[in-house]
Design a protein around this nucleic acid. Structure first.
Lengths: 223, 223
DNA sequence: GTATAGCACGAACACCTGTTCGTAGTCAAG
DNA sequence: CTTGACTACGAACAGGTGTTCGTGCTATAC
């Protein structure tokens, strides 16, 4: 990918798209952009729009008239920056993916060095009183449907290695190397892991064959 | 000017325009509207759009593709939600429960007279660009486990009576009187409702035996 | 020089899209 | 019954619109 720098032409195009949408409520066509920015050929506009897409400033819907959208990245150029108040909104790092068969890897640095784009924002009122050590993971694959968690869902976890009775935890089963989300129940000399789906049966494991990766605080599905 | 009353068809059109703009950021074309609202002729859509213009619900730019805009009058139809703190946070009414066997009842007053305590707060960044006509329901019972939705989960819906291809919708099946959450797929002369759980089979219903209550925007589970 | 990559141009194509036209059914008023 | 307003339909047209193609310019690297 090319550098993120924008040519004068591309800046003009972005500015025009933004003002056009403000005025009319719809995106401009390629020819309208060309006319406004003194570009005589539609292919040149098309070319620059694809460049802008590669650089993350616009989204395009193929073969759709006015199939243009400014991304948040582009809108930030025009000064509409969101202010986050610590008390009302909590921003969590989207630290990676959960994939069955792999333990969750969250380095400590994940809390310090995550990107703007890879963050999840949650209202503080929806979370437990303390927000420390929380992080988010995106579920990849269908391996957790028995935990009522879909491919693409976002799981918010508190990092901890122990669990209390009844907690929903992310657990790594060393026996078969899978990571699952289950309710944790300590029994006499074993651990019962109960699926969230009440129609399914629990599994039992030795405490030593279990590594708790975190406590599930919330699951979010965007459709 | 004609009466301000809207035919069912015109309401459907308005609802579709609103949801289309929320999804894609651009207005739909006449043919897209027709396809979504079961109108085979573009002239009929055009006719109803002109009626809506006369009644003050939309503005039209002649001879311009997607030259449509909803007026404020139309947007008020979809209710407005209270937005706090520079739009970083959106407060939605927790309008009630979803229970299998009952259609969802959301009076228009639900948007005006909900209690502080019965609200759900979501970061604006996690929602579609427009927050009109959103409301939240708490799922009661285990009847939606095939939609990967648990007892106690919160479902955020956009109120609408039509659905686009692939949308996750809350639908009331008149045959057996149940309310379910499924992916909506229009087929030749029937509707396929696909469970979110990919291991389960779809069900097929007559379009007339189906009443769409809203589009599912998000599912939240607090553990 | 020569090669390569990035940028730009105009033209043509195929499909999209708003508009218009003629026609027809329904319903209430005369 | 006849009239007229309202709603609805399918077809066709003219122009809009995204895409692609061949071409050529400039600057940098070899």
């Amino acid at each position: 990918m090319a550098k993120a720098e924008l040519s004068k032409r591309q800046k003009n195009i972005l500015t025009y798209i933004d003002s056009y949408m403000d005025d009319s409520g719809r995106p401009p066509t390629i020819r309208e952009i060309g006319k406004a920015t003194d570009i005589s050929s539609t292919s040149v506009v098309n070319y620059n729009l694809n460049k802008l897409r590669e650089k993350g400033y616009v989204m395009r819907d193929a073969e759709v008239s006015r199939g243009l959208r400014l991304t948040e990245k582009a809108q930030k150029l025009f000064g509409s920056v969101r202010v986050t108040l610590e008390e009302t909104l909590v921003r969590l790092p989207l630290a990676g993916n959960i994939v069955a068969g792999e333990p969750i890897e969250v380095g400590n640095d994940a809390f310090a060095t995550y990107d703007e784009d890879d963050a999840v924002e949650i209202a503080a009122s929806m979370l437990p009183p303390r927000h420390d050590n929380l992080y988010a993971l995106r579920v990849s694959g269908d391996s957790m449907i028995d935990a009522m968690v879909n491919d693409g869902d976002i799981v918010i976890l508190r990092k901890q290695e122990t669990a209390n009775e009844g907690d929903m935890v992310a657990a790594w089963l060393m026996d078969d190397g899978t990571t699952t989300l289950k309710h944790f129940h300590a029994e006499k000399d074993r651990v019962r892991l109960q699926p969230a789906n009440r129609t399914m049966d629990p599994i039992y494991v030795e405490p030593d064959a279990l590594q708790i990766q975190g406590k599930v605080v919330m699951v979010i599905r965007q459709t």
